[in-house]
Simulated scan of single mutants.
Amino acid sequence: MKSFSGLILLSFIVFQACSDSNENVTQEAVQNNDEFKTFKIDTEAKPVSIFELIEEVEIMRFEETEESLLSYIYQVYSTEDEIIFPSGNDGSIYSYSKKGEFIRKFSHVGNGPGEYEFIWSFWVDGDRIFVSDINRRRLLSYDLEGSHLKSWKLPFSAKSFFTYDKGFVADLDYRAFQDSLQFNVLFLDENMEVKQMANPYFSPLILYVGSNVNSFQPYGKDLIYHGFKRDSVFLIEDNRTRPLLKFDFGEEWLWTEETIKNNPRTTGLIRETDLVWWVDSYIGEKWIYLSYKTSMKDVFKVLIDRNSGVQKAVKVNKNAATKYAMTPIKWEEDRFMVSLQSPDVQEFMTDLGESKVKFREGTTLDEIESSENPVLLWVKFKELK
Protein backbone atom coordinates (compact mmCIF):
# COMPACT_ATOMS: atom_id res chain seq x y z
CA MET A 1 0.00 0.00 0.00
CA LYS A 2 2.85 2.35 0.87
CA SER A 3 4.51 1.48 -2.43
CA PHE A 4 1.31 2.27 -4.36
CA SER A 5 0.95 5.62 -2.52
CA GLY A 6 4.56 6.42 -3.28
CA LEU A 7 3.94 5.68 -6.97
CA ILE A 8 0.96 8.07 -7.00
CA LEU A 9 3.04 10.76 -5.32
CA LEU A 10 5.91 10.25 -7.76
CA SER A 11 3.49 10.41 -10.73
CA PHE A 12 2.00 13.64 -9.36
CA ILE A 13 5.45 15.18 -8.97
CA VAL A 14 6.41 14.20 -12.52
CA PHE A 15 3.07 15.52 -13.87
CA GLN A 16 3.44 18.77 -11.95
CA ALA A 17 7.03 19.19 -13.17
CA CYS A 18 5.90 18.64 -16.77
CA SER A 19 3.03 21.10 -16.33
CA ASP A 20 5.39 23.71 -14.88
CA SER A 21 7.84 23.03 -17.70
CA ASN A 22 5.13 23.44 -20.37
CA GLU A 23 3.94 26.64 -18.73
CA ASN A 24 7.50 27.97 -18.67
CA VAL A 25 7.95 27.06 -22.33
CA THR A 26 4.72 28.90 -23.22
CA GLN A 27 5.73 31.97 -21.21
CA GLU A 28 9.21 31.88 -22.74
CA ALA A 29 7.71 31.71 -26.26
CA VAL A 30 5.55 34.76 -25.54
CA GLN A 31 8.53 36.65 -24.11
CA ASN A 32 10.66 35.72 -27.12
CA ASN A 33 7.95 37.03 -29.42
CA ASP A 34 8.21 40.38 -27.67
CA GLU A 35 11.93 40.59 -28.35
CA PHE A 36 12.83 42.72 -31.37
CA LYS A 37 12.63 40.87 -34.68
CA THR A 38 13.04 41.77 -38.33
CA PHE A 39 10.95 40.08 -40.99
CA LYS A 40 12.27 40.38 -44.53
CA ILE A 41 9.26 40.69 -46.82
CA ASP A 42 9.54 39.07 -50.22
CA THR A 43 7.49 41.36 -52.48
CA GLU A 44 8.00 38.92 -55.36
CA ALA A 45 6.59 35.89 -53.52
CA LYS A 46 3.87 34.04 -55.38
CA PRO A 47 0.62 34.45 -53.41
CA VAL A 48 -1.41 31.44 -52.32
CA SER A 49 -5.16 31.40 -51.87
CA ILE A 50 -6.31 32.26 -48.37
CA PHE A 51 -8.52 29.17 -48.52
CA GLU A 52 -5.40 26.96 -48.49
CA LEU A 53 -4.30 28.54 -45.20
CA ILE A 54 -7.55 28.48 -43.22
CA GLU A 55 -8.32 25.70 -40.73
CA GLU A 56 -11.81 26.91 -39.81
CA VAL A 57 -14.03 29.99 -39.70
CA GLU A 58 -16.78 31.14 -37.35
CA ILE A 59 -19.41 33.52 -38.74
CA MET A 60 -21.72 35.97 -36.98
CA ARG A 61 -24.47 37.97 -38.68
CA PHE A 62 -25.62 41.46 -37.67
CA GLU A 63 -29.37 41.88 -37.39
CA GLU A 64 -30.77 44.30 -39.97
CA THR A 65 -33.47 46.74 -38.89
CA GLU A 66 -34.60 50.14 -40.15
CA GLU A 67 -32.14 51.69 -37.68
CA SER A 68 -29.27 49.34 -38.41
CA LEU A 69 -28.49 49.36 -42.11
CA LEU A 70 -24.75 48.87 -42.01
CA SER A 71 -22.06 49.78 -44.50
CA TYR A 72 -18.51 48.44 -44.17
CA ILE A 73 -17.01 47.60 -40.73
CA TYR A 74 -13.35 48.34 -40.06
CA GLN A 75 -13.01 48.77 -36.25
CA VAL A 76 -14.63 46.63 -33.55
CA TYR A 77 -14.43 46.77 -29.75
CA SER A 78 -16.15 44.52 -27.25
CA THR A 79 -17.44 44.93 -23.72
CA GLU A 80 -18.64 42.04 -21.59
CA ASP A 81 -22.05 42.11 -23.28
CA GLU A 82 -21.77 44.18 -26.44
CA ILE A 83 -19.91 44.59 -29.73
CA ILE A 84 -19.46 48.27 -30.64
CA PHE A 85 -18.26 49.79 -33.90
CA PRO A 86 -18.70 52.64 -36.38
CA SER A 87 -19.89 51.70 -39.86
CA GLY A 88 -19.36 53.64 -43.05
CA ASN A 89 -18.80 57.38 -43.14
CA ASP A 90 -22.04 58.77 -41.71
CA GLY A 91 -20.71 59.12 -38.16
CA SER A 92 -22.97 56.52 -36.54
CA ILE A 93 -21.78 54.16 -33.81
CA TYR A 94 -23.61 50.83 -33.41
CA SER A 95 -23.99 48.42 -30.51
CA TYR A 96 -24.91 44.75 -30.93
CA SER A 97 -25.18 41.79 -28.61
CA LYS A 98 -22.71 38.92 -28.78
CA LYS A 99 -25.38 37.05 -30.78
CA GLY A 100 -25.58 39.78 -33.41
CA GLU A 101 -28.81 41.35 -32.18
CA PHE A 102 -29.15 45.10 -32.70
CA ILE A 103 -29.19 47.10 -29.44
CA ARG A 104 -28.77 50.78 -30.32
CA LYS A 105 -26.97 53.35 -32.39
CA PHE A 106 -26.07 56.99 -31.92
CA SER A 107 -24.54 59.78 -33.93
CA HIS A 108 -23.27 63.16 -32.77
CA VAL A 109 -22.27 64.60 -36.12
CA GLY A 110 -22.61 68.38 -36.00
CA ASN A 111 -20.98 71.66 -35.05
CA GLY A 112 -22.10 72.01 -31.45
CA PRO A 113 -20.70 70.96 -28.06
CA GLY A 114 -20.24 67.21 -27.76
CA GLU A 115 -20.38 66.76 -31.54
CA TYR A 116 -17.84 65.69 -34.13
CA GLU A 117 -17.41 66.25 -37.85
CA PHE A 118 -16.02 62.82 -38.69
CA ILE A 119 -14.94 59.71 -36.76
CA TRP A 120 -11.17 59.43 -37.03
CA SER A 121 -9.76 57.51 -34.07
CA PHE A 122 -12.40 55.38 -32.36
CA TRP A 123 -12.07 53.06 -29.40
CA VAL A 124 -13.86 51.73 -26.33
CA ASP A 125 -12.27 51.72 -22.88
CA GLY A 126 -14.41 50.08 -20.20
CA ASP A 127 -17.76 51.87 -20.24
CA ARG A 128 -16.58 54.83 -22.31
CA ILE A 129 -16.53 55.35 -26.07
CA PHE A 130 -13.93 57.75 -27.49
CA VAL A 131 -13.93 59.63 -30.81
CA SER A 132 -11.23 61.98 -32.05
CA ASP A 133 -12.16 64.77 -34.47
CA ILE A 134 -8.89 65.49 -36.25
CA ASN A 135 -10.05 68.54 -38.22
CA ARG A 136 -11.39 70.36 -35.15
CA ARG A 137 -8.62 69.18 -32.84
CA ARG A 138 -11.14 67.70 -30.45
CA LEU A 139 -11.39 64.47 -28.46
CA LEU A 140 -14.79 63.41 -27.13
CA SER A 141 -16.07 60.68 -24.83
CA TYR A 142 -19.53 59.13 -24.47
CA ASP A 143 -21.10 56.47 -22.31
CA LEU A 144 -22.26 53.22 -23.90
CA GLU A 145 -25.74 54.69 -24.41
CA GLY A 146 -24.26 57.53 -26.46
CA SER A 147 -24.61 60.35 -23.92
CA HIS A 148 -21.82 62.91 -24.11
CA LEU A 149 -19.46 62.79 -21.12
CA LYS A 150 -16.52 65.07 -21.84
CA SER A 151 -14.68 66.96 -24.57
CA TRP A 152 -11.04 67.98 -24.76
CA LYS A 153 -9.79 70.80 -26.97
CA LEU A 154 -6.38 69.78 -28.28
CA PRO A 155 -3.36 72.10 -28.54
CA PHE A 156 -2.00 70.05 -31.46
CA SER A 157 -3.14 68.04 -34.45
CA ALA A 158 -2.89 64.26 -34.01
CA LYS A 159 -3.74 61.41 -36.35
CA SER A 160 -4.54 58.85 -33.64
CA PHE A 161 -5.31 58.66 -29.92
CA PHE A 162 -5.73 56.00 -27.28
CA THR A 163 -6.25 55.93 -23.52
CA TYR A 164 -3.11 55.02 -21.61
CA ASP A 165 -1.94 55.18 -17.97
CA LYS A 166 -4.85 57.32 -16.69
CA GLY A 167 -4.29 59.68 -19.61
CA PHE A 168 -3.72 59.38 -23.33
CA VAL A 169 -1.13 58.70 -25.99
CA ALA A 170 -1.20 60.56 -29.32
CA ASP A 171 0.37 60.03 -32.75
CA LEU A 172 1.38 63.36 -34.32
CA ASP A 173 2.16 61.67 -37.65
CA TYR A 174 5.21 63.75 -38.65
CA ARG A 175 3.75 67.01 -37.32
CA ALA A 176 5.97 69.08 -35.08
CA PHE A 177 4.83 69.71 -31.51
CA GLN A 178 5.02 73.42 -30.61
CA ASP A 179 6.68 74.00 -34.00
CA SER A 180 10.07 72.84 -32.77
CA LEU A 181 9.95 69.55 -30.89
CA GLN A 182 10.13 66.83 -33.51
CA PHE A 183 8.42 63.83 -31.90
CA ASN A 184 5.81 61.46 -33.25
CA VAL A 185 4.40 60.18 -29.95
CA LEU A 186 3.14 62.23 -27.00
CA PHE A 187 2.19 60.82 -23.59
CA LEU A 188 -0.49 63.00 -22.01
CA ASP A 189 -2.19 63.28 -18.64
CA GLU A 190 -5.99 63.42 -18.25
CA ASN A 191 -5.91 67.19 -18.92
CA MET A 192 -3.95 66.80 -22.17
CA GLU A 193 -0.75 68.14 -20.64
CA VAL A 194 2.36 66.52 -22.14
CA LYS A 195 4.18 64.21 -19.72
CA GLN A 196 6.68 62.63 -22.07
CA MET A 197 7.60 62.37 -25.75
CA ALA A 198 8.97 59.51 -27.84
CA ASN A 199 9.96 58.49 -31.37
CA PRO A 200 11.79 61.54 -32.70
CA TYR A 201 11.76 62.15 -36.44
CA PHE A 202 14.06 64.26 -38.55
CA SER A 203 12.08 65.38 -41.57
CA PRO A 204 8.44 66.29 -42.09
CA LEU A 205 6.55 63.95 -44.41
CA ILE A 206 3.86 65.89 -46.24
CA LEU A 207 1.39 63.38 -47.61
CA TYR A 208 -2.22 64.28 -48.23
CA VAL A 209 -3.45 60.73 -47.82
CA GLY A 210 -4.89 59.52 -44.53
CA SER A 211 -6.02 56.35 -42.81
CA ASN A 212 -8.73 55.96 -40.21
CA VAL A 213 -7.02 52.83 -38.88
CA ASN A 214 -5.85 53.76 -35.38
CA SER A 215 -2.05 53.84 -35.00
CA PHE A 216 -2.48 52.27 -31.54
CA GLN A 217 -3.67 48.71 -30.95
CA PRO A 218 -4.29 47.02 -27.59
CA TYR A 219 -1.70 44.32 -26.97
CA GLY A 220 -2.19 42.48 -23.69
CA LYS A 221 -1.86 45.12 -20.98
CA ASP A 222 0.17 47.37 -23.27
CA LEU A 223 -0.23 49.05 -26.66
CA ILE A 224 1.32 48.63 -30.07
CA TYR A 225 2.16 51.72 -32.10
CA HIS A 226 2.39 51.51 -35.89
CA GLY A 227 1.70 54.31 -38.34
CA PHE A 228 0.92 53.32 -41.92
CA LYS A 229 3.93 55.23 -43.31
CA ARG A 230 6.41 53.30 -41.17
CA ASP A 231 8.10 49.95 -41.64
CA SER A 232 8.64 49.51 -37.88
CA VAL A 233 6.27 48.58 -35.07
CA PHE A 234 6.78 49.75 -31.49
CA LEU A 235 5.62 48.37 -28.14
CA ILE A 236 4.42 50.97 -25.65
CA GLU A 237 5.10 50.04 -22.03
CA ASP A 238 5.84 52.13 -18.94
CA ASN A 239 5.25 55.39 -20.83
CA ARG A 240 7.99 54.54 -23.29
CA THR A 241 8.25 53.04 -26.75
CA ARG A 242 10.64 50.34 -27.83
CA PRO A 243 11.09 48.67 -31.24
CA LEU A 244 9.18 45.41 -31.50
CA LEU A 245 9.13 44.51 -35.21
CA LYS A 246 10.60 45.72 -38.46
CA PHE A 247 9.27 44.80 -41.89
CA ASP A 248 12.26 44.85 -44.19
CA PHE A 249 11.21 45.66 -47.75
CA GLY A 250 14.80 46.34 -48.82
CA GLU A 251 15.08 48.67 -51.79
CA GLU A 252 11.31 48.40 -52.32
CA TRP A 253 10.66 50.75 -49.34
CA LEU A 254 9.87 54.33 -50.31
CA TRP A 255 10.16 56.36 -47.11
CA THR A 256 13.89 56.57 -46.56
CA GLU A 257 15.25 59.63 -44.78
CA GLU A 258 16.82 60.80 -48.03
CA THR A 259 13.54 60.41 -49.91
CA ILE A 260 11.63 62.44 -47.32
CA LYS A 261 14.19 65.25 -47.28
CA ASN A 262 14.40 65.56 -51.05
CA ASN A 263 10.70 65.12 -51.78
CA PRO A 264 8.63 66.89 -49.11
CA ARG A 265 5.50 66.69 -51.31
CA THR A 266 5.29 63.04 -52.02
CA THR A 267 1.94 62.03 -53.52
CA GLY A 268 3.33 62.16 -57.06
CA LEU A 269 6.34 60.13 -55.96
CA ILE A 270 4.07 57.24 -54.99
CA ARG A 271 2.70 57.04 -58.52
CA GLU A 272 6.13 57.37 -60.13
CA THR A 273 8.13 54.82 -58.14
CA ASP A 274 5.74 51.88 -57.51
CA LEU A 275 7.53 51.27 -54.18
CA VAL A 276 6.00 50.22 -50.86
CA TRP A 277 4.59 53.31 -49.14
CA TRP A 278 1.65 52.10 -47.01
CA VAL A 279 1.79 49.36 -44.37
CA ASP A 280 -0.97 48.20 -42.02
CA SER A 281 -0.07 45.52 -39.49
CA TYR A 282 -2.32 43.46 -37.25
CA ILE A 283 -0.22 41.92 -34.49
CA GLY A 284 -1.30 38.91 -32.46
CA GLU A 285 0.61 36.84 -29.93
CA LYS A 286 1.49 34.27 -32.60
CA TRP A 287 0.48 35.79 -35.93
CA ILE A 288 0.96 38.94 -38.00
CA TYR A 289 -1.42 39.87 -40.79
CA LEU A 290 0.36 42.44 -42.95
CA SER A 291 -1.16 44.61 -45.65
CA TYR A 292 0.87 46.94 -47.88
CA LYS A 293 0.50 49.09 -50.98
CA THR A 294 2.80 49.95 -53.88
CA SER A 295 0.34 52.26 -55.64
CA MET A 296 -2.88 54.07 -54.87
CA LYS A 297 -4.99 50.96 -55.52
CA ASP A 298 -3.04 47.68 -55.34
CA VAL A 299 -3.05 46.00 -51.91
CA PHE A 300 -0.82 43.03 -51.01
CA LYS A 301 -1.30 40.78 -47.98
CA VAL A 302 1.12 38.59 -46.02
CA LEU A 303 0.51 36.14 -43.16
CA ILE A 304 3.51 35.69 -40.83
CA ASP A 305 4.12 33.17 -38.05
CA ARG A 306 5.99 35.15 -35.37
CA ASN A 307 7.50 31.99 -33.83
CA SER A 308 8.98 30.40 -36.94
CA GLY A 309 9.23 33.45 -39.20
CA VAL A 310 7.48 31.54 -42.00
CA GLN A 311 5.39 33.83 -44.17
CA LYS A 312 2.93 33.42 -47.00
CA ALA A 313 1.79 36.01 -49.50
CA VAL A 314 -1.99 35.78 -49.54
CA LYS A 315 -4.62 36.37 -52.20
CA VAL A 316 -8.34 36.60 -51.41
CA ASN A 317 -9.66 36.18 -54.93
CA LYS A 318 -13.19 35.11 -55.83
CA ASN A 319 -11.95 34.49 -59.35
CA ALA A 320 -9.27 35.80 -61.69
CA ALA A 321 -10.89 39.22 -61.97
CA THR A 322 -12.40 40.01 -58.57
CA LYS A 323 -11.51 39.77 -54.88
CA TYR A 324 -13.53 39.19 -51.75
CA ALA A 325 -14.13 42.48 -49.93
CA MET A 326 -12.62 41.24 -46.67
CA THR A 327 -11.70 44.00 -44.22
CA PRO A 328 -9.11 43.06 -41.57
CA ILE A 329 -9.96 44.20 -38.04
CA LYS A 330 -7.92 42.58 -35.25
CA TRP A 331 -6.70 39.38 -33.59
CA GLU A 332 -8.72 37.80 -30.78
CA GLU A 333 -6.32 35.26 -29.29
CA ASP A 334 -5.50 32.92 -32.20
CA ARG A 335 -8.45 34.01 -34.38
CA PHE A 336 -8.31 36.83 -36.89
CA MET A 337 -11.44 38.97 -37.06
CA VAL A 338 -12.44 40.28 -40.49
CA SER A 339 -15.67 41.62 -41.95
CA LEU A 340 -17.20 40.32 -45.16
CA GLN A 341 -20.12 41.58 -47.22
CA SER A 342 -23.16 39.29 -46.85
CA PRO A 343 -23.68 38.62 -50.63
CA ASP A 344 -20.22 36.98 -50.64
CA VAL A 345 -20.80 34.60 -47.73
CA GLN A 346 -22.25 31.63 -49.63
CA GLU A 347 -19.54 31.76 -52.29
CA PHE A 348 -16.88 32.16 -49.59
CA MET A 349 -18.20 29.06 -47.80
CA THR A 350 -18.17 27.07 -51.04
CA ASP A 351 -14.57 28.08 -51.81
CA LEU A 352 -13.45 27.25 -48.28
CA GLY A 353 -15.50 24.08 -47.85
CA GLU A 354 -18.65 24.14 -45.74
CA SER A 355 -17.23 21.58 -43.29
CA LYS A 356 -14.77 24.25 -42.13
CA VAL A 357 -17.52 26.78 -41.34
CA LYS A 358 -19.32 27.23 -38.04
CA PHE A 359 -22.09 29.69 -37.26
CA ARG A 360 -22.07 31.44 -33.91
CA GLU A 361 -25.16 31.18 -31.74
CA GLY A 362 -27.96 33.27 -33.20
CA THR A 363 -26.65 33.11 -36.79
CA THR A 364 -27.99 31.11 -39.72
CA LEU A 365 -27.21 31.24 -43.42
CA ASP A 366 -30.82 32.15 -44.19
CA GLU A 367 -30.56 35.24 -41.96
CA ILE A 368 -27.33 36.29 -43.64
CA GLU A 369 -28.74 35.90 -47.15
CA SER A 370 -31.88 37.88 -46.27
CA SER A 371 -29.81 40.84 -45.06
CA GLU A 372 -27.45 43.33 -46.68
CA ASN A 373 -25.48 43.86 -43.48
CA PRO A 374 -21.88 42.61 -43.45
CA VAL A 375 -20.88 39.70 -41.22
CA LEU A 376 -17.95 39.10 -38.90
CA LEU A 377 -15.60 36.18 -39.46
CA TRP A 378 -13.22 34.71 -36.90
CA VAL A 379 -10.54 32.97 -38.96
CA LYS A 380 -8.25 30.28 -37.56
CA PHE A 381 -5.20 29.62 -39.71
CA LYS A 382 -3.26 26.40 -40.16
CA GLU A 383 0.37 26.12 -39.17
CA LEU A 384 2.49 27.58 -41.98
CA LYS A 385 5.03 25.32 -43.70
Rank of each mutant, 00 (worst) to 15 (best):
E117Q: 11
F51K: 00
S3P: 00
E333M: 02
D248Q: 04
G220T: 10
A45E: 15
F359E: 10
I8K: 12
K380D: 10
E369R: 14
F348M: 01
E272P: 00
I13N: 09
I329E: 09
S97Q: 03
S180V: 07
M349Y: 07
S49H: 06
K46T: 11
R242K: 14
W123T: 08
T327Q: 12
P264Q: 12
S68A: 12
T26M: 13
N33S: 05
S370V: 01
S97W: 00
Q182L: 15
K323R: 14
Q217D: 11
E56H: 04
P113E: 15
P200D: 10
F300V: 02
S291F: 05
Q182E: 15
Y164F: 03
M60H: 00
I41F: 00
N317V: 03
F106L: 00
L149S: 03
L172Q: 05
G110R: 05
S215R: 07
V357C: 03
N191Y: 14
N111Y: 09
T267G: 05
F216H: 05
I54F: 00
P343C: 07
I84K: 03
V379Y: 09
W277I: 05
P343K: 11
D133I: 00
F130S: 10
E190N: 11
L139M: 10
V314T: 03
V30P: 01
A325S: 15
N135W: 06
F39V: 01
K40W: 09
N214K: 06
S21C: 11
E190D: 14
V302Y: 14
F102E: 06
E354P: 00
L53F: 02
Y292H: 05
L365V: 00
T26L: 13
S121E: 12
N212D: 14
V375R: 05
S371D: 09
M1E: 12
N33Q: 12
E272V: 02
D125H: 09
V131L: 02
D334R: 08
S232K: 09
T364S: 15
L186E: 12
S107K: 02
F106Q: 02
D222F: 03
R104M: 06
D34M: 13
F187N: 10
W331M: 06
L352D: 11
M296L: 15
A313V: 04
V14C: 09
D305N: 14
N24Y: 13
K301N: 15
Q182H: 15
F130L: 09
D90V: 04
R137K: 07
K159H: 07
K261P: 01
V345L: 01
F51G: 01
S71L: 07
N199R: 13
V375S: 06
S151E: 15
V314I: 02
K246N: 13
E372S: 12
E369P: 05
V233E: 08
F51I: 00
S107R: 04
F36G: 04
N317T: 11
K385R: 13
V375Y: 04
